[in-house]
Computed example of a mutant assay.
Amino acid sequence: MLYLIAHVQVSFGDNYEKKLSSVVRVSVNDSIDGIGARCEITCPLNARIEKDGGTPFIAPVRTAFKTGDKVRVKAWYDDYRERTLFEGYVYQIREGTPSTIVCEDQVYLLRRGILNKVWNKPVKLKEILQYVCSSQGVEVSDDVADVEFIKFSIKDSSPLYVLQQIKSEMWLVVTFRDKKLVATGISATKGNNVKLASDRNVIGCNIQQPDGVWKQFKLKVEYTDNNGKKKSFTVGDQEGQIRVVDCTSVTKENAESFVNTHVLDNLRTGMYEGTLTTLLYPEVKLFSLVDYKDKSFSSLNGTYKVKRVGVTIDTQGCRQTLTLAQIASDMPVPQTTLSNG
C-alpha cells in the first residue's frame, strides 16, 4: 500500500528545548468518553536527544524524561504545514525494549492537590468548576451546562476526582478543548467544520446502522421539590432504554431543562454511527462537524459529530481514525411525564 512519510517532532522541557530524535511510534487519543487526551510515545530504551540544536546524545529514557515534563508532538508531510497533535505533560514512563512515554493534557495538572469546599446556598456548575480548576491554573470554557445546585460539597478530593464524579452523575461530556475545560452536551460544544468524501480524503469507512434506527432513551429524573420531598419525572422516548439521572441536588425546573438539553443529547445519536479513517490531513478535532459524502453508499451521506479522534504514526505511515455519530435533524420533541418519587 502506498503511503506518505510523516515527519514527527517530539519536543519536551520547560521551553520545549529538547527534542527526541528516535521515535518508533506515536499514538494520540482524545474521546468524549474520558476526561482529556492521552498520548503514548514509543522510543528506544536509550533515547537519542537533541538539545538547543546541539550535537545529539544518547540517554536512558528514565534520565531523559521525568514526570511533569512538558511535551509537544508535531507532525507533517513534505510540503505540508505542521500539525500540533498533542500538548501536555509526561504522566508515566514505561521502560522496556522499546520504552513508552505516557502523556496527558491538562488533566495531568488536575491529579494534584486535595480540595475541601462546601456551598450551603445555590451555586452554578460553572462556579464549582472554576473553583476546582483554578487550584491548578486550568481555565474553564464558556461551554458549561446551566445547572444550579441547591448545595454542593467537596471533601478530601483531588480536582480530577471531582470532575469524574460530576461527569458520571450528571451524564455530561467533561473534557478539554483548546486547553479549557468544557462540561456540556456534545452538540452544545462547537468544533471546526470539515468536509470528507470517500473518493477524496477518506481511506476507510465503517459506518453502520447499529439498531436499524437511531438509539432511543427514556430518562427517569429524580429531583427534590420545594418541600424537600423526593419526586421524579420521565423524559425522552417512552419506549426507549431507561436510564436514571440523579438531580436531587438541583431544582425540578433546572433539572428538566438540563436533561432535555444535555443528557439526551449525549445519549442519542442519528441513524448511523461508526468510524472514518483518513491520513494526517485534514485536521479534525473533537466535537468537529463532519460533512461526509460517500460515493458508493449515498445513505451514509450526512452531517456527523466527532466523538473521538485517534492519530497513530509509525513505520506504516499515519492514520487518523474518527469515531462519529450522525446528527438527526428530525428527532421528535421529548415527552415529559411527572410522577411522585
Rank of each mutant, 00 (worst) to 15 (best):
V118E: 08
L129F: 09
W119R: 00
Q136T: 04
S135A: 15
W119E: 05
N116H: 07
S134N: 14
V123I: 07
V147I: 15
Q136Y: 07
R112T: 12
G137S: 08
W119F: 09
P122I: 01
R112I: 13
N120Q: 12
K117C: 07
V118F: 06
V144E: 06
V132C: 05
V138S: 04
G113R: 12
V147S: 03
L125C: 11
I128T: 01
D146S: 14
K126E: 13
G113L: 08
S135L: 03
G137A: 10
P122Y: 01
L125I: 12
V138Y: 04
V140H: 05
K126C: 04
Q130Y: 01
V118M: 13
L129G: 08
A145M: 13
D143K: 15
A145H: 08
V132K: 03
R111L: 02
K117T: 05
G113P: 10
V138H: 10
S134V: 07
V147W: 08
K117W: 04
V140R: 02
E139Q: 15
R112N: 14
L125M: 14
Y131K: 03
C133W: 06
V132R: 07
Q130W: 00
V118Q: 14
V147K: 13
S135Y: 06
V132G: 00
E139Y: 05
E139L: 15
Y131A: 02
V140G: 08
Q130N: 13
S135P: 03
V138A: 06
